[in-house]
Amino acid sequence: MKTRKFKAVSSAVLALALACGAALKPAQAVTVNEPSGINLGGTSFFDALGKYTPGLIYQQYFQIQHFNAINDTNGNAIPVFKNTSITAIVSLNQFIYVSPYHLFGGVLGAMAIVPLVDLNASFAHDSPVRLVANRGMGVGDITWGPFIAFPPVIRGGRPVFAQRMEFDVISPSGSYDTSKDINPSSGFWSINPYWSVTVLPTAKTELSARFNYLHNFTNSQPASSAPLPAGTTTQAGDAGWVNFTASYEVLPKLNVGLNGYYFKQFTDDQVNGVTQKGTETESLAMGPGATYMFNQNNIGFLNVYLPVVKKNTTNGFNVILRYIHAF
Rank of each mutant, 00 (worst) to 15 (best):
L321H: 05
S173E: 05
G231W: 12
G157E: 09
M1W: 01
F95C: 03
M1C: 04
C20P: 02
F327R: 01
S99A: 12
T205E: 14
H125F: 07
T3Q: 11
W195H: 12
I191D: 00
I96D: 15
A27G: 14
P100K: 11
K180S: 12
G260M: 04
M293R: 13
K311R: 14
V274L: 11
W189I: 12
S127E: 11
M137R: 09
Y213M: 13
A149Y: 06
I182G: 02
V256M: 09
G37C: 13
I154T: 12
A203T: 12
G106H: 04
S185Q: 09
G260S: 07
V160Y: 10
G231F: 04
S91E: 12
N259Y: 00
S11A: 15
A203Q: 14
R158G: 08
L302W: 08
S36M: 10
Q235Y: 03
F62Y: 15
T143W: 11
A226P: 03
A77L: 02
N76W: 03
E282Y: 03
Q163A: 14
N134S: 13
Y248P: 00
T313Q: 06
N183T: 09
N259V: 14
A290T: 06
P307H: 01
F81P: 04
M111Y: 08
G105R: 06
Y176A: 02
G21Q: 12
P307I: 00
N93F: 13
F211R: 01
L258Y: 08
S127N: 10
F263T: 02
T73E: 09
V160E: 12
N212V: 03
L40G: 08
K253G: 02
N76M: 10
I86Y: 02
Y61N: 13
K264S: 14
P151K: 11
T233R: 06
K51I: 15
A48E: 13
V9P: 01
F211C: 05
S208T: 13
Y58H: 14
G260F: 04
S85C: 04
T314I: 05
V107S: 06
S208R: 02
A246K: 00
S44M: 13
N33T: 15
D141N: 11
A209L: 03
A121M: 10
E34K: 12
S11Q: 08
V250Q: 01
T279F: 01
A17N: 15
V139P: 05
N74L: 06
N219G: 10
I78R: 11
I89W: 06
S220R: 15
P288W: 05
L108P: 01
P252L: 01
S85Q: 06
S122Y: 01
G174Q: 06
E282R: 14
Q94K: 09
K310P: 04
I191M: 13
I96N: 11
A162C: 09
I89R: 12
V117Q: 07
E280S: 10
N68T: 12
P307C: 04
I38C: 09
M1Y: 00
